[in-house]
Structure formats: C-alpha cells, structure tokens
Design a protein around this nucleic acid. Sequence first.
DNA 1: TTATAATTTGACCGAACGGTCAATCAAATT
DNA 2: AATTTGATTGACCGTTCGGTCAAATTATAA
Lengths: 190, 190
Amino acid sequence: MARTVKENETRKKIIEAARKLFSEKGFEGVSMEDIAQASGVRKSLIYYYFPSKEVLFEEIWIQIIDELENELFAETESDGNITRMIKRIIRKYIDFVMNKEELSKLIARERLNVMESESQLKRAKTKYSGFLKRLELLFEKGREANVLNDIEPSTATELVTTVGAVHRKGILRNIEEFLLKVLLKERPEH
Amino acid sequence: MARTVKENETRKKIIEAARKLFSEKGFEGVSMEDIAQASGVRKSLIYYYFPSKEVLFEEIWIQIIDELENELFAETESDGNITRMIKRIIRKYIDFVMNKEELSKLIARERLNVMESESQLKRAKTKYSGFLKRLELLFEKGREANVLNDIEPSTATELVTTVGAVHRKGILRNIEEFLLKVLLKERPEH
DNA sequence: TTATAATTTGACCGAACGGTCAATCAAATT
DNA sequence: AATTTGATTGACCGTTCGGTCAAATTATAA
C-alpha cells in the first residue's frame, strides 16, 4: 500500500519545482537535472514517479488547464443569459492571469508549442484544444443569440488566449474592457 | 578578396533557413543540424560564417529589430505632433505584425527569453532593450505633452509589444483601435 | 524480529547537441 | 601551370541530455 503522506510530499515537491521552472524557462529550457536540484531529490527518483519528462510536463499542463477551466466554467454554464456568461468568463480569465502568474505565464510560454506539436505532448494538446473548444462554443452561442460582434468564434478565442500573455496588472483591466468591447455588441458598463 | 556574390548566397541561405526555423520552433527548439539541412549545406560550414549558434541567432534578431525600427521610426520622429506620431507608430506596428508574420512570430516567441537572459544573448538583449526604450521615450513625450492616458510609459510599451503576439489578421485592426483608446486621451477616428 | 515493499540513490548508458579540425575542392591570383 | 585563398565537407570531440538499473535505505506488514 502506498505511503500516501510521504509520496504526496515528494511527488508534490517535484511537480511544484518543475512547474516553476517550466514557467520561467519553458519545456526545452529546463533539464531533469534542474528539476531534481530544485526539488531536492536525485534525478532518477523523478522517473520513479513520472515515466518521462514529457509526461511530467503534461501532468502539470493538465493540472493548470483544469484549474483554469474550474475558474472559468465552474458556475457559469448554468446561467441562461449568454451576455452575462461571456462577461463573467472574461472577468474570471483576467483574474486568473492577474492572480496566478506562474500558471498563466506557463500557458503563455508553451501554448504555441503545445498546439503545434505533432507526435509529442498529445495529451497536453488534447487538453488545451478541449479548453479552446469550450471557449469557442460559448462564443458560438453568443453569435447564435446575436450578442457577439461580427467576429468569428475561433478568432475571439484566439484573441482572448493571446492577450493573456500580458502580465502588467496595471493594464489587465484595460484588456478586459477591450475584450468586452470587441466581443460583445453592448457597451461594457462601469 | 571576398567572392561577395557567392558568399552572399550561401550566407543568406543559412540566415533565411535559420530565421524560418527560429520563428517556428524557437532558439532552443532548433539544432544546427536542422539549420544545415534546411539551408542545404553541411553543419560545419555554418561555423565558417558564424562563430556560434548564439551569434547566428543574435544576427538574425538584430536584423529583425532593425527592420521593425525602420518601419516604425523612419519618418515619424521629425513630426512635431506627438499624438499623430503615436498613432502612426501604432498603425505601422500593426502593419508589421500583419505583413511580416515570420519576423513578428519570432519576436513574440523569443522576446521573453531575450529579455530574461543574463550571460547569453547580450547583443540581442541590448538591441531589444534599445527598441523598447525608443518606444517608451515616445510615450514619455506623450505624457509630457499631456496626450497620454494615465498609464506608465513602460506599461504602454509592454502592452504594445505583448499584443503583437496576436496574429489573426481579422482582429489586428481591433487591437490597433484598442491600443489607441487605451493609450491616447482623444478617441480614435474612423 | 524478520520479511517485504516502497522510496531513494549513485553509477552508468546511448543519443543528440554545439562545436572543431584536417582534408578536399573550387575559384582567384601570380 | 602553379600557387594561394576561400568555401565546403566528413569525421570526430566533449558535454549535456533523457533515461535505466542494481543496490541501499527506509517504512510497513507479518
């Protein structure tokens, strides 16, 4: 039987160290030795918990996208008002970028590589594509309800996820306003 | 004496192949062997023209930032009207992102790594810092002339350069409007 | 107390990487 | 024609990388 307390400690330390390093330097810029040193274990122990560097990255990526999806979609989808739903999701997305800098920086840094990967990072790509699809479906509904401006849902999705690379907190609220203005037909209230 | 025609051909081929690959996969994601194969020469020939991978990257980076600066600043700085100058520069920047996709994607992909590098890529960093400084000085002038909104020039600079990561042409004009709205006190004209 | 299982380690491996160098080839000069 | 110079190549090097494995240590179960 697993010593769950101890396993959770070491495994968690590895994940936390790796996430921090991936956020700072990206997947290719970090070595397994870097992660080992940052987490205080020997490199070969990482392979006891994770079969490869790629799987470790994917697990972190999936955790992050899970957390992002929980922030954005947890309570929103039961709302009948599509405009309010879009507003709330944009708001929560900007909150996420502001408050979870390590996570949002990792997404900003690696999302292109994840999306463009072919034979690698399949699970990461699937996860992220699923997230983008959920966003796009929401904008699709907005278009059908005739509250979206003349903008393709896929384009709206890319706009939102790209401007998430801005991290100066002083302008993220400007960006929120900008997004609402570009996306929704009604003018955002103050 | 140099056989300048022939040297220009091979050297140019190497630079073009490298730029394309760096744009697609980033500095760390491309090997010298990749570049050699893409340019149709043997890897060791690259070292005949460039002492290292880092120097090759820096030469490409400097060319790109030169081109960007030429687009943005070539005729603008003699204009006395600071509002018009800022408008024109934002316009030209969006034009650059739309029309020079390979270059703007390389900047978007590597600018964080360039700015955060410590012992490497010094010339690339210096070049990019210089470019950012020029932008910031322009916004500084805008603030002094009281035409900038309540936004730090350094923040304005980061906003402009970050949203340059958006490549969907359908929304770059929206972004231009957004930038002008956020940065300038007067409303942008249509 | 002993046995077993889980965790952890140090040593090691093959491949890929950035880079070097002597040799060869092609072009230019004498 | 011979020599010199520039361009190009194949073979090779040392280092770093992702990853493996047997042994040792620690924790748990019997």
